[in-house]
């Protein structure tokens, strides 16, 4: 009995504390300017979609959202394309210099963005990638690869090797073994990696701030961070924009909760 009460309390606390702050933003987004500016603030909105209208149409939120979608989608696909074979090789094959490769990957996952920002910026400058969406996709891919490889490799290791051995005896090379045999079995792992990369790329702020300086290419986080009004902080529009920016992620989390939890769990400790 006591245990159940404790559990109930735990659920209440963790769910409440997780959601409550954001709910305040959701409430704010439906308020009117007068609701927001009153001191003390009002609890409940008087029901008003005006902030969504201005956020979406006056603050180019659609453009930002589209750019975020393009950047996050491309990053995810490219990173998976590169990470899957690499993870497979590291998990199953003898890679000469494997320790070195692992060391490089581990090292990369520790880099502060600042340490690489300047040089990446100059690199992209010489490649003509500044102010292009692909200019942020490349560093995003490089920075998400270690985590993706790590999760995928631990998944591949969990799979029974017998099928692959059979395929190989039948004459399939490593590439085709990977695509024909291993990949279909590792769908959950791939899905997890994809979600993690997607969330990273959707949320990343720093490189986007440096590399994309035109509103036509900027992503949602940059748009929201640089959100400023004329003579008061536009909290209402900001709240509306934040809700719009977060909604897709909430949907992803609601739909894919199982994958995220099991994927990270499997990747984390069993590896």
């Amino acid at each position: 009995m006591k245990r159940r009460m404790l559990l109930g309390l735990g659920i209440f606390l963790s769910v409440g504390l997780s959601l409550l702050p954001f709910l305040w933003f959701v409430l704010t987004s439906f308020k009117s300017q007068a609701d927001i500016e009153s001191i003390p603030p009002t609890w409940w909105p008087s029901g008003n979609l005006g902030f969504y209208r201005t956020a979406l149409f006056d603050h180019r939120l659609f453009d930002y959202a589209f750019n975020s979608l393009v950047v996050a989608g491309s990053t995810t696909i490219l990173a998976l394309l590169l990470a899957i074979p690499a993870a497979y090789a590291l998990a199953r094959l003898t890679v000469p210099g494997k320790r070195g490769v692992l060391a490089v990957l581990l090292c990369v996952s520790m880099f502060p963005q600042m340490a690489i920002a300047g040089p990446i910026w100059r690199l992209l400058d010489s490649m003509g990638g500044l102010n292009h969406r692909w200019g942020v996709v490349l560093p995003y891919v490089a920075l998400t690869l270690p985590l993706a490889i790590w999760i995928l490799a631990s998944f591949f290791k969990e799979l029974p090797p017998e099928l692959e051995d059979a395929a190989r005896i039948d004459g399939c090379g490593p590439w085709s073994t990977l695509f024909r045999i291993t990949l279909p079995l590792a769908t959950p792992g791939i899905f997890t990696a994809a979600i993690l990369i997607l969330i990273y790329a959707w949320n990343e702020f720093f490189f986007a701030l440096l590399i994309l300086t035109q509103p036509e290419q900027q992503t949602l986080p940059v748009g929201i961070a640089l959100f400023q009004g004329e003579f008061t902080m536009p909290w209402g529009e900001l709240a509306a924009a934040s809700v719009v920016a977060t909604l897709p992620l909430i949907v992803v989390v609601l739909l894919c909760q199982r994958w995220i939890v099991s994927g990270l769990s499997a990747g984390a400790v069993k590896g």
Partner: peptide, 29 residues
């Protein structure tokens, strides 16, 4: 040796990108 080659061809693209966009920049920094 073919397997080794395949293994490297699997790792190389990922490694190349990582080196270009992470390792080299740190060295440059």
């Amino acid at each position: 040796s073919r397997e080794r080659l395949a293994a490297w061809s699997m790792v190389a693209p990922a490694l190349l990108l990582t080196v270009t966009f992470a390792l080299y920049p740190v060295a440059d920094s």
